[in-house]
Design a binder for these strands. Structure first.
Lengths: 223, 223
DNA sequence: GTTTTATAAATTGTCGACAATCGACAAAAC
DNA sequence: GTTTTGTCGATTGTCGACAATTTATAAAAC
């Protein structure tokens, strides 16, 4: 619910570049040249440089000294590593939120879970995944660990990139997935930490198996 | 075995500031003014700005738009959150390195473990903690998860800050700790994932209990 | 005496220019 | 023909100056 229109120029540019990277308009492995971006947007290089440092924090680019910024590649190895890390961190989050969630938190979690169910029944893939993300973020907030929140937020762009890449192949699992979310929500509402954690871990493992094959054909010609 | 003498100016400055923050020469809550740092080092503000963005990545400062950079506070809440995250991530690392460690990895882990033992017997507190960190880093490398490696590396400065703050009160546990490290090492060498993970988790939990009380008296006058 | 408003100082944000460095290509040596 | 060396172009790194914004200070109103 943030109404911030602008933010600093650097942040706007970071957002702009982030969108273009997620949508594959700028491809993994591409170099981002400061001057190109600056001229294209009619600004100077300083804010562009800062934007690149912001993107580096979110692992969207890798800054190589005196060489510039490359868009990070979504290799199968990275995807596997990300899922393994998420299993641990989100598993922890699931358990913690059964301990710390307020009634208000639980309500928000419930809402997102129901929305995901509705969307899955309507075959609204985009709405479904937005609901799942909201569900996760609501649990994250409820877990009351700012650091974990930060770390996972910094991973979110990578998650979105993977989702964008494998959007096509993931539709199959939609109904099945929705039931897992429903189950996870139930465990959270019942404050069953052990099962909440287990459900999350299983869910991420399952996601990985859907996502990994779809990275095979990713061959990007360098511009 | 790297021969890099300098690194970019910004990185050097980041290192310089990091040292001063860890050693409490610059205190939590202090504002870092770009011009002050630049004049003090006889350089311009641009590399200082970049240095601050680097420090932000390592959670040493918080950059607030149009306000500047504040040194992050090591509150008991943050310390608790950090330990909880580390229990998950390092636990995972311990388990994974039993699966993926090469003979070379195991040798390095063994060396660090033995060194920690020697240092603890000699009451060499500084050497001991360096050995423990090396032990952890060796396990981390052996776990073969670059992302986890990155995330934990970004947490390392926070760990060092906590260690610096509570260096005095931690000497007590030295011998006891050394035995846990030895046990952990044994499980890794035997490739017993379950026990390696459990040992790490217990160790971090124990660390937390030693560290947390020492944050009570932290009252820092703003400069 | 407290609150509000206006002004001044300090600080970050952005800019354009110059310096330093790296990569690619071509020329020369072997 | 292959390797080495040198030059050129492109790109990042750093600088000093100016603009925009925020905080601090002081005056005025109530």
């Amino acid at each position: 619910m943030s109404f911030k229109v602008s933010g600093s120029l650097a942040e706007q540019i970071a957002g702009h570049l982030q969108d273009r990277i997620i949508s594959l308009e700028i491809k993994p492995g591409d170099w981002i040249r400061e001057l190109s971006v600056a001229e294209e947007l009619g600004i100077s290089r300083s804010p562009v440089r800062e934007a690149l440092r912001i993107l580096e924090k979110y692992r969207m680019v890798e800054i190589i000294p005196r060489r510039g910024a490359v868009v990070t590649e979504m290799t199968p190895e990275f995807i596997r590593e990300l899922h393994e890390v998420l299993i641990e961190l989100l598993g922890y989050t699931g358990r913690k939120c059964t301990e710390n969630a307020t009634q208000e938190d639980l309500a928000k979690i419930e809402e997102a879970a129901q929305r995901s169910r509705t969307c899955s029944q309507n075959r609204d893939l985009y709405g479904y995944y937005r609901a799942v993300i909201d569900f996760g973020l609501a649990c994250l907030t409820a877990a009351r660990n700012r650091l974990a929140e930060q770390i996972i937020s910094e991973l979110l762009p990578s998650i979105r990139r993977i989702m964008y890449i494998s959007f096509a192949t993931m539709g199959d699992s939609l109904i099945e997935d929705a039931e897992i979310i429903t189950a996870g929500n139930r465990y959270v509402q019942e404050r069953n930490g052990e099962m909440a954690e287990k459900t999350v871990r299983d869910y991420i493992s399952k996601l990985q198996s859907y996502v990994l094959p779809s990275t095979r054909e990713s061959e990007s010609p360098h511009a």
